[in-house]
Design a protein around this nucleic acid. Sequence first.
DNA 1: AGCGTATTTAATAGGTTTATTAAAATTGGC
DNA 2: GCCAATTTTAATAAACCTATTAAATACGCT
Lengths: 206, 206
Amino acid sequence: MNRYSAKEELILQAAEALFLTKGYTNTSTTEIAQKAGCNQALVHYYFRTKENLFQQIFIKKVMSLFAEFMKTRPAGMDFTESLRERMGMYFDFIEANKQLPFMVINELAANLERRQAFCEELRTNPIYTQLYRQFDDEVQREIQAGRICPIDTTDLYMDIISLTICTFITLPTYRVLLQFDNEAEKQYIRRRKEELITTIQKRLRP
Amino acid sequence: MNRYSAKEELILQAAEALFLTKGYTNTSTTEIAQKAGCNQALVHYYFRTKENLFQQIFIKKVMSLFAEFMKTRPAGMDFTESLRERMGMYFDFIEANKQLPFMVINELAANLERRQAFCEELRTNPIYTQLYRQFDDEVQREIQAGRICPIDTTDLYMDIISLTICTFITLPTYRVLLQFDNEAEKQYIRRRKEELITTIQKRLRP
DNA sequence: AGCGTATTTAATAGGTTTATTAAAATTGGC
DNA sequence: GCCAATTTTAATAAACCTATTAAATACGCT
């Protein structure tokens, strides 16, 4: 079941929400405690240090982000179809976790140690290496069969995450700049999703 | 000439380097003073507040980023050619200012007031509105002439900055992950630049 | 040389932050 | 219903950060 106590869970949730929206430095343990409805000392009682608490949330979240795209290819589809499917899923996942890209970018870019720990995990954990290899194999097969044009798998992956992530990274600014109301924003996001899929499909045409 | 005194200039430089790499919150005025080789009080003497100092650097930098792409179309080229040229220039500009995207993302996303001030500037300053309108006109003309396929100008612009910026946002991580040495990194960046141009050109094909 | 202004510093007030400690409250087993 | 372990709190130490103030130093001008 749940290896966390109720309060511990509340603290984790509060911390996650705050770290995601405000980043590591801008979030204080006092604030986390407040949001979780407990004393600040309790945060340290359960997690000892702020860094510790952050790591637990960070690793979990970031890995889910990476794994989302590399998910096993849905059965009974050709590559192009399944890629479209996966891009859609990835895009939706980030839409549902709009703040995640910010946290990842901030913490990975700002902190060498965290970056190294993260890369170490990515390089050594067979879950991720296998997922990547599998995706790469698919791409190579399609290229050899002439169904898509030659492209480096890294580039393809980068293109997809770039177009996805930047949509949400620029969103807060676009919201102000283009004066989105709720409906306009939804529509914009839908359009960006279409644009992502179109662009990648055209990119892959032989 | 230079309206800054020598020490003032040193402080600005130190602050710029630090804000760019570590962000606003993670940089202290003490640190800036240290790097500039002066007393911490001097930072406040010249710029009164840390926020003030930051603004001066931020506005200048961000506006140069936006303006770079919208530069007037180089003469004697057709649109496709000139677009390629401009994408190259934009990419190179960001390569020469690798840290800039981080600062922009962080500060615009994290701080509503800054975002509003920035958007206000972008919306009202004729330099930027004109540059954008001009680019939009070009795109419309090309579409009507059937030389490129229909696309929303906002989408086209977003695609370009996405592919450019994400290259450098992920770079610190890729550096560790793919264990780049100097040469490998350069090569990777060159490849990403090609990929950007290829992808956009294919995207625009009728 | 000497006065007045601009620059630079040391010292410090006032605030916030993380982390610890010791005591109080709560819970579950018997 | 009491004891012991767990959970929670209040209080506070120690570090650090921004901003200010008043004093010291350098500088330009006559």
